[in-house]
Amino acid sequence: MKSCVRAALALAVVSTVLAVSGPSHATAFAAWQVVGVPFGDTLNARKYPASTSQKQAAYPNGTRLQMTGRCTGGVDLLDLSGQPHWQQRQAIRYRWCEIWHDPAQNGHFVTGWVYGKYIAPAE
């Protein structure tokens, strides 16, 4: 009987940890910011990595973004983190990178995509 209780308790703990941690690609880090957007314009965050995809939100220059680390073409921002900033920017310049954000500002965070030309490692 004790082993059944221990097994049930272990299963409950594992289930809780998995539910809280979520998918690994959604592990966010806030180390990039919006840069180079023309005056009076904003960087659009989109639902999918395409300029024709639904716009979720818009961010002005200087906004810090929570990146998941994933970019199109298999680029991982964590793999680039040891490189000089100019090399990191060059690696993602023509790629879409995934962010973790709250477009409606209601506590409901979702993933979205921004174009790499307009983001840079935060100083």
Rank of each mutant, 00 (worst) to 15 (best):
T16A: 15
Q66W: 12
C97L: 02
A10K: 09
T52Y: 05
A45W: 01
A45Y: 02
P103N: 12
Q56R: 14
V13Y: 14
T16L: 15
V35T: 12
A28P: 01
G112S: 11
Q33V: 02
G116S: 03
K55Q: 14
P60C: 06
C4P: 02
G62F: 14
C4K: 12
Y48P: 03
A28K: 12
V110S: 12
D79L: 09
R6S: 01
G116L: 03
G22D: 15
Q54K: 13
V110D: 15
A10S: 11
P84A: 05
T52F: 11
T52N: 13
T72E: 02
T63W: 06
R6E: 05
V14Q: 15
G74F: 05
A10N: 07
W96I: 04
P103M: 04
F29I: 03
S81L: 08
G116A: 06
P38Y: 02
V17M: 13
T111Q: 13
V110M: 11
V75H: 09
G116D: 05
R46F: 03
M1C: 05
Q88W: 06
L11P: 03
T42C: 06
R89V: 01
A28H: 11
W86V: 07
R70T: 02
V37A: 01
L65H: 08
H25K: 05
A57I: 00
A26D: 13
C4G: 10
A58T: 00
G73C: 03
Y48M: 04
Q87K: 15
C4A: 09
A8C: 06
P49Y: 08
L9S: 09
G62I: 06
S51A: 14
Y48D: 14
L11M: 10
L11C: 09
G62S: 00
P84I: 06
L11A: 15
A58Q: 14
H101K: 03
V75I: 15
H108T: 11
G82R: 10
G69R: 09
L65R: 07
L65P: 10
K55D: 07
D76T: 06
L9P: 02
L80M: 12
D79E: 15
T72A: 00
L78T: 05
A58M: 04
V37P: 09
D79I: 01
W86K: 12
G62M: 04
S15G: 13
P84D: 10
A120P: 04
C71W: 06
A8W: 05
Q83K: 15
S15Q: 12
A19G: 14
A31Y: 04
S24R: 14
T42R: 13
A104Q: 15
A28Y: 08
G40H: 04
D102V: 00
A31W: 09
G74T: 09
A10G: 05
N61K: 08
D76Q: 12
G112D: 11
P49C: 08
Q88D: 10
P49I: 06
A12I: 08
H25I: 03
L77I: 05
W113T: 03
A91K: 07
S24Y: 10
L80N: 06
R93N: 12
L43N: 04
A31G: 12
M67I: 13
W96R: 03
Y118L: 04
V110K: 11
